[in-house]
Design a protein around this nucleic acid. Structure first.
Length: 273
DNA sequence: CATTTCACCTGGTGGC
DNA sequence: TGCCACCAGGTGAAAT
């Protein structure tokens, strides 16, 4: 489900609701644990801490927690495809597939819900000043020059390169397709073969699409919701994603669907060269 | 290394 | 209504 705009929306919503709250107790589901860190270590690191701040890094949600003599932990949440992070009153019924609950001093709960269990939870101990940085560059702040440099010499498709979180972190399947459409570039184009001008257009398109999507609260394709359970609206702005066979909104040509790097890929054969 | 393929899961949808 | 094939926002391990 969640790419940069959805993760940003969720992180901001959670931050508004739980910043300053204290984690009184923790429940972690059993069986196939969607955890990187062991459950015992995680519960131990979280219990008793104050939530200082919640924010997004790439597609990760980062909880900065209060410091004590044991160190300064960060709780890292990755939503995978279907993960949700909800803030609810304890009295609200638990959704199916709830894997983690943080019970807060305010009486509310942070709940991690994830049917497909592709999501991941982890504790990261902050080293020196840095903290969790993610795997690649942030698409919203990277310069055109740095952006262009990312793709230099790469033989893979530009679509696969956009999805590579070690290069740019936060762009996923929807926003890769939508950005390439707006930049007029075929998803199959070799990443290292983009002209300077195309690379500049793509940089602009990626930032524009992501910012617009954040303003609209992300894309709700099937079940994505923010921390309050509210849907986003950017799906109404999709020009190619999931529109295979339908007419291009610019030129009327049928949008084509193909599989690239194992992902459904949508583009206009006329508008994208 | 860079790149590609596939497994990991559950649930919704559309065809028959 | 039921069954089945196929598709879905992501990633990391394994193979090439």
């Amino acid at each position: 489900m969640p790419e940069l705009p959805e993760v940003e929306t969720v992180a901001n919503g959670v931050d508004q609701r739980v910043r300053g709250d204290v984690i009184e107790s923790v429940w972690l589901g059993s069986k196939p644990e969607p955890f990187k860190t062991g459950a015992a270590e995680m519960a131990d690191a979280l219990t008793g801490r104050r939530i200082e701040r919640v924010y997004r890094v790439g597609k990760h949600i980062v909880f900065d927690l209060s410091v004590d003599e044991g160190g300064e932990p960060q709780w890292i949440v990755h939503l995978g495809m279907t993960g949700r992070l909800l803030v609810s009153a304890a009295s609200v019924a638990l959704p199916a597939h709830t894997h983690a609950i943080l019970r807060l001093a305010s009486g509310r709960e942070v709940r991690f819900v994830d049917p497909r269990r592709f999501g991941r939870l982890a504790i990261q101990w902050r080293a020196a000043e840095s903290g969790f940085q993610g795997t690649g560059r942030e698409p919203l702040t990277i310069s055109i020059e740095e952006f262009t440099k990312l793709f230099r010499g790469r033989k893979t498709s530009i679509k696969a390169a956009l999805l590579n979180q070690k290069l740019l972190q936060g762009v996923g399947n929807i926003y890769a397709d939508e950005s390439l459409f707006r930049a007029g570039i075929r998803p199959t184009r070799r990443a290292g073969r983009l002209t300077r001008e195309q690379s500049g257009r793509l940089h602009g398109a990626v930032q524009e699409v992501l910012k617009h999507a954040i303003q609209l609260g992300g894309s709700s394709v099937s079940d994505y919701v923010d921390a309050d359970g509210v849907k986003g609206f950017f799906q109404l702005e999709h020009r190619v994603y999931l529109r295979g066979g339908e007419p291009c909104l610019v030129c009327g040509t049928a949008i084509r669907r193909m599989v690239l790097g194992g992902r459904g890929t949508h583009y206009c054969p006329t508008c994208q060269k």
